Measured scan of single mutants.
Amino acid sequence: CHSECLGNCSQPDDPTKCVACRNFYLDGRCVETCPPPYYHFQDWRCVNFSFCQDLHHKCKNSRRQGCHQYVIHNNKCIPECPSGYTMNSSNLLCTPCLGPCPKVCHLLEGEKTIDSVTSAQELRGCTVINGSLIINIRGGNNLAAELEANLGLIEEISGYLKIRRSYALVSLSFFRKLRLIRGETLEIGNYSFYALDNQNLRQLWDWSKHNLTITQGKLFFHYNPKLCLSEIHKMEEVSGTKGRQERNDIALKTNGDQASCENELLKFSYIRTSFDKILLRWEPYWPPDFRDLLGFMLFYKEAPYQNVTEFDGQDACGSNSWTVVDIDPPLRSNDPKSQNHPGWLMRGLKPWTQYAIFVKTLVTFSDERRTYGAKSDIIYVQTDATNPSVPLDPISVSNSSSQIILKWKPPSDPNGNITHYLVFWERQAEDSELFELDYCLKGLKLPSRTWSPPFESEDSQKHNQSEYEDSAGECCSCPKTDSQILKELEESSFRKTFEDYLHNVVFVPRKT
């Protein structure tokens, strides 16, 4: 048989008469490798580009789960590009990614509803959504962080984005990388972005840091009482949809009607710091009717980097990364020049730590249904340095008659930039024990000054392991946590139920 035959053949030295091919099969003959313009397919066939392209389009058009959109890589027609490569849609070739590779997620039936953290986790790592997304989240724990972890990498949506009755959302900033909504599939009414009845939605994105392009379709905003109209108009300008909307697409009466839409800028007039305090004062603000001013709200939190936005980490279910302080308005003076500047002394802060701070007014709604208010920009203030805590785990070892090696770990709280350490030492008198000992005694162990690591005695271990207080009263049991108490109650309830079950099964009433 021919060298490319495997198993047997019907005619000697003829690659077209093989029972099976050793390498690849091409047009009725066995070959060692697939010549151009053919590609290896499933490690035994040679196919042309049209064959591989037909497989790709067949799966793409069917949208069946589990099928493969075949691509070409290293002269092979394979189910998908290997790690580190992405497909070129024009020629199906796998090309190296520039940075992290995109991950295209194809949605069944063309859309997916995100109504819980669990459903959001199914899209973790996706960068391109081939379909439409509907966000409908009523509640949950730590929602802002969970949504950002699972949806934060999405850069492109081919269909539309719909935010509907998501009472738990305060902001859409968890879509931190969303840059493009194509609108290839539109919501009824030709809408590519749809926001309806979101009672706590206050911000779409921080438009000073976020760009969003909507290729096709219109915007729809109705019944978002805490979303200011200025935020919607800003989205029109940034996304390129200005002029597409009709009169009733953006409701003037049901958007922002319960919001404090600040239209003035508060400026800080005085800032002073110490290692654990920050004193702030800002310019006074009074609405047209000074009785509408209820006070100020001061927001602050630790910020290692200057990239904080107002609604980071917030949701309507209680999660809030900001510390909020309510401040009463100052006494009002008739003389504008003698107006008191409101302020606040922030206490209990960490030394040498940068804080993000902003302040906003708290006002009631005027009778004319106009909203007044003022808010400052987010500023960054760093507390002063102070003395560091003591170095940890000092170790001293003498390696000769004239040297001592000293080692330690950095302090747990540096409280500033540590530039150097101060080492103090003092000579001590020799131990009298060394002169009084009889060095001729056998088995004498000389006193040693070398360091030995501390260890816990058996008594201390027994005390720590004991669940009861000892007789001397030195140790006591740790208080039980809520989960331990709940577990004990469940076990007790189970024992009672099981005992009742045994009584009912074992003891049967005697027939009379």
Rank of each mutant, 00 (worst) to 15 (best):
K103I: 09
K103L: 09
V104W: 14
V104P: 09
L108M: 13
E109T: 09
G110T: 11
T113Y: 12
I114H: 01
I114C: 05
S116H: 05
S116N: 02
V117M: 09
T118I: 02
S119I: 04
A120S: 11
Q121Y: 01
Q121L: 05
E122R: 15
E122S: 11
R124F: 08
G125P: 04
N130L: 13
I134W: 11
I134A: 10
N136I: 04
G140P: 13
L143I: 11
A144W: 08
A145W: 08
E148S: 04
L151F: 04
I154R: 00
E156F: 11
I157F: 03
I157Y: 00
I157V: 05
G159H: 03
Y160V: 05
L161S: 01
I163Q: 01
I163Y: 01
Y167P: 14
Y167I: 13
A168V: 11
A168M: 07
S171I: 02
S173Q: 08
S173L: 09
F174Y: 10
F175I: 13
F175L: 14
K177S: 12
K177Y: 13
L180D: 12
L180W: 15
G183R: 02
G183V: 01
G183A: 03
G183K: 01
T185N: 09
T185K: 13
I188R: 12
I188Q: 13
G189P: 06
N190T: 12
Y191S: 14
Y191K: 08
S192Y: 00
Y194R: 12
N200K: 12
N200V: 14
R202S: 07
L204A: 08
L204G: 09
W205L: 11
D206W: 07
W207I: 10
S208Q: 14
K209N: 02
H210Y: 14
N211W: 09
L212I: 13
T213V: 12
Q216M: 06
Q216S: 10
K218R: 13
P225H: 06
K226V: 07
K226S: 05
C228S: 03
C228N: 01
L229M: 03
I232S: 03
H233T: 11
E236G: 15
S239P: 06
T241F: 09
K242A: 09
K242H: 05
K242V: 14
G243Q: 13
Q245Y: 07
N248M: 08
D249R: 07
D249F: 08
I250K: 05
A251I: 09
L252E: 08
L252C: 12
L252Y: 12
G256Q: 05
D257Q: 01
S260Y: 13
C261Y: 02
E262A: 11
E262N: 14
E264T: 06
E264A: 04
E264W: 01
E264K: 04
L266I: 05
Y270T: 03
S274Y: 11
D276A: 13
K277M: 04
I278V: 15
I278L: 15
L280V: 14
W282I: 04
W282A: 14
W282N: 02
E283Q: 02
E283P: 07
Y285S: 10
W286D: 01
W286F: 15
P288Q: 06
R291V: 01
R291N: 05
D292W: 14
F296Q: 01
F296T: 02
F296A: 08
F296R: 00
F296C: 09
F296S: 06
M297R: 01
M297W: 12
F299K: 06
F299S: 03
F299R: 15
F299I: 14
Y300K: 04
A303D: 10
P304E: 15
Y305G: 11
Y305R: 11
Q306R: 13
Q306M: 01
N307F: 07
V308R: 07
V308H: 01
T309F: 07
T309M: 06
D312Q: 04
G313H: 06
Q314K: 04
C317F: 14
C317T: 01
G318A: 13
S319I: 11
S321H: 08
S321Q: 15
W322F: 04
I327A: 06
I327D: 01
P329F: 08
P330M: 05
L331K: 11
N334K: 12
D335A: 15
K337Y: 08
K337G: 09
S338F: 13
S338E: 12
S338H: 08
N340W: 10
N340L: 09
H341K: 10
H341L: 11
P342H: 05
G343S: 14
W344C: 15
W344N: 12
L345H: 15
L345K: 12
L349S: 03
L349G: 03
K350Y: 12
W352R: 01
W352A: 06
T353W: 09
Y355A: 01
I357G: 04
F358T: 12
V359A: 00
T361Q: 02
L362T: 01
L362E: 05
V363G: 07
S366R: 06
D367V: 02
E368R: 14
E368P: 08
T371I: 09
Y372K: 06
G373E: 02
S376L: 01
D377W: 09
I379Q: 09
Y380A: 05
V381A: 05
Q382S: 14
Q382A: 08
A385L: 04
T386M: 10
P388F: 00
S389L: 03
V390L: 14
I395K: 04
S396I: 08
S398Q: 03
N399C: 03
S400Y: 13
S401A: 15
I404L: 14
I405R: 05
I405L: 09
